[in-house]
Amino acid sequence: MTPPSIPFPPASSETQLVIRHDSLAALVAATPHREPEDNDLRCLATGVYFESRGEPLDGQLAVANVILNRASSGRFASSACAVLTQPGQFSFVRRGVIPSPSTSAAWRAAVAVARIAREEQWHSPAPGALFFHARHVSPGWARPVVARLGNHIFYR
């Protein structure tokens, strides 16, 4: 009896080369900039941009993961856009309207971080976090702290 053959995927222009990076900064830098091709990725990047554009990349990634974690939790809306527009959740959203970010290096980084988070290319620095706030705010939450990154504190 001959062993079953194991098919190998054909080489094509669609085959992606996976490159390991030593740092999140290297991965962000290596992510080619393309404007988001779908509205949910645009919303995710916009959330990163407005909530954390001045923060270290790990803090930006943690913000992206909070938005994604909420969308998949069943406790919040089920898309990044809907998570952002839930009343009282994100201070940059006014009356349910998500503003447009300016095209800049910070926007390009936010788009890269959003792609990396959505494609799970880097481990979350705040695993399981569903909430965060700036350090200067004291909401009095009795939630477990997951991480302190840059100017934000992340909670489960």
Results as ranks from 00 to 15, higher is better:
residue 62 A to L: 10
residue 74 G to K: 14
residue 37 E to K: 13
residue 26 A to K: 12
residue 32 P to G: 01
residue 90 F to P: 03
residue 95 R to I: 02
residue 107 W to H: 02
residue 18 V to R: 15
residue 118 R to E: 11
residue 39 N to F: 12
residue 82 A to D: 08
residue 82 A to L: 11
residue 116 I to T: 07
residue 82 A to T: 07
residue 49 Y to A: 07
residue 78 S to G: 13
residue 65 N to T: 15
residue 70 R to W: 08
residue 88 G to C: 05
residue 53 R to I: 13
residue 103 T to I: 06
residue 41 L to I: 02
residue 121 Q to V: 09
residue 36 P to V: 04
residue 14 E to D: 15
residue 126 A to M: 11
residue 94 R to G: 00
residue 127 P to T: 15
residue 121 Q to G: 12
residue 38 D to Q: 14
residue 15 T to M: 13
residue 84 L to G: 00
residue 108 R to I: 11
residue 82 A to W: 00
residue 37 E to N: 14
residue 77 A to G: 01
residue 123 H to K: 13
residue 115 R to A: 13
residue 97 V to D: 06
residue 98 I to K: 01
residue 55 E to S: 10
residue 64 A to D: 09
residue 88 G to R: 13
residue 51 E to L: 13
residue 48 V to A: 07
residue 123 H to W: 15
residue 83 V to T: 06
residue 99 P to M: 10
residue 91 S to Y: 12
residue 26 A to Y: 08
residue 45 A to Y: 05
residue 58 D to Q: 09
residue 37 E to R: 15
residue 92 F to E: 02
residue 82 A to Q: 09
residue 38 D to R: 15
residue 103 T to D: 11
residue 74 G to Y: 07
residue 109 A to H: 04
residue 118 R to T: 08
residue 48 V to F: 06
residue 110 A to S: 10
residue 110 A to L: 02
residue 97 V to P: 00
residue 31 T to V: 04
residue 33 H to G: 05
residue 31 T to Q: 04
residue 55 E to P: 06
residue 127 P to H: 14
residue 35 E to Y: 00
residue 116 I to F: 01
residue 108 R to N: 02
